[in-house]
Design a binder for these strands. Structure first.
Length: 342
RNA sequence: GCAAGGGUGGUGGAGUGGUCUAACACAUCAGACUGUAAAUCUGACGCCUUCGGGCUUCACAGGUUCAAAUCCUGUCCCUUGCA
């Protein structure tokens, strides 16, 4: 039952372009992963929403039947690519228009087009397009972000209903903005709640300048949204950040850290203080222990720290694959532990 | 043995009188990464430092010069060609 999504704590790896980087769907399944996230903008650019629809939808395309697929709206890409001027483009009250630096094609993302693309992708849980900003923006910017997010949320929900989202068994969630202004967070959360979404996502940038989770802002969102709807902490986060967020009531998580860090040699282990094992460090070159003595993943059952250290050092994809498998398994086990403590 | 060219930091390799502890790359040692522009990025990388700076390096030994990795002499090595 999709209505039960978020009733239990779930960690969703990011399969941004239709794959969790370096893993096959089978390898991903073996980490115990059920639900995953894909990205509207990335899949729109390649291979295209219609192409995926023609191929039978993203579930079939990537052969993922373990659980639900959530599609992010592209709001974060507008933030990270346009606001930071990495891509050319402009944002106005109707949405965002931008030029892909690769093939120069112009793309437009509006609340309606984002929903439409997500429907074509065939994901189960949609996210309404939002105007994402940095954690540290001035009040004026934050107010604009909230107003646009509310307007876009309303339009997204209307379009979702128009396209028969509920009849197709899908859910749609909204993103709460407001940066670090607690009253704006509260206002945004309350207004979105009046519209009646299936889930409420904590949006914006989830860490401050010092890399600390913005937990006070996250609490305000929980306090001002319906108790019976899922709460998704977008982009959270480090293991401890997930623990802290789950403690106050969030149950849905995703982050790129888990897989990116794996590729970069930062592994997670219950054997280590703070769970951190910087496997590339020279001290592990002769360490014949597994990454985590309590782990049941392919990497831990079959290989030593020294082996994976070597693989990553010399740039073998095998090292990154094993590290990614392990880190994902670690996160799934972390979430299982949290769930059993609830 | 003769001729020619060459010996630069862990490695490759710039530099041919001052701005040289010596480009750049690699290796090494750390760090970062939070709705993925990311198999990426940042820093350190002769020694000492009260972080202002101080001291020692370019095969070795002398010399010229205010000043030498750079010019000269000798020594020792290496490469190629001819014997």
């Amino acid at each position: 039952m999709i209505e039960d999504f978020g009733k239990k704590i779930t960690f969703m790896p990011d399969a941004t372009r239709g794959a969790v980087r370096f893993l096959t769907s089978t390898q991903l399944k073996d980490t115990g992963t059920k639900n995953i996230v894909v990205n509207t903008l990335h899949l729109l650019i390649h291979p295209g929403a219609d192409a995926i629809a023609d191929l039978g939808g993203i579930h079939k395309f990537m052969n993922w039947n373990e659980g639900y697929m959530l599609s992010d709206s592209g709001g974060f890409q507008v933030f990270s690519l346009l606001h930071s001027k990495k891509w050319e483009g402009k944002i106005d009250s109707n949405g965002a228009t931008f030029k892909s630096p690769r093939e120069g094609k112009i793309y437009t993302l509006t609340p309606e087009s984002s929903v439409e693309i997500q429907m074509k992708l065939g994901t189960d849980i949609l996210v309404a397009l939002d105007d994402c900003r940095d954690a540290q923006v001035d009040r004026r910017e934050a107010e604009i972000s909230v107003e646009r997010t509310l307007e876009w949320g309303k339009r997204s929900l209307a379009h979702f209903k128009k396209l028969g989202g509920y009849e197709k068994g899908k859910l749609i969630s909204a993103v709460v903005q407001g940066a670090n202004f607690l009253d704006l967070r509260e206002y945004c959360a309350k207004e979105l709640s009046k519209m009646g979404f299936d889930g409420y996502n904590f949006g914006g940038y989830v860490i401050d300048d010092n890399g600390k989770l913005v937990i006070e802002e996250m609490k305000v969102v929980l306090e001002n949204t319906p108790k019976d709807k899922f709460k998704y902490a977008m982009g959270v986060g480090k293991p401890q950040d997930i623990v802290d967020s789950a403690e106050i009531g969030y149950t849905v998580f995703d982050t790129v850290l888990v897989t990116r860090n794996a590729r970069h040699g930062t592994l997670y282990s219950f054997d280590e203080a703070d769970y951190i094992l910087r496997l590339k460090n020279s001290q592990y070159s002769k360490d014949i222990k597994p990454i985590d003595s309590t782990c049941d993943c392919e990497a831990c059952l079959n290989h030593t720290r020294a082996y994976i250290h070597h693989m990553i050092r010399v740039g073998e994809a095998t090292g990154m694959i094993l590290a990614t498998i392990h880190n994902l398994r670690f996160y799934q086990r972390l979430v299982e532990k949290l769930q059993s403590e609830v």
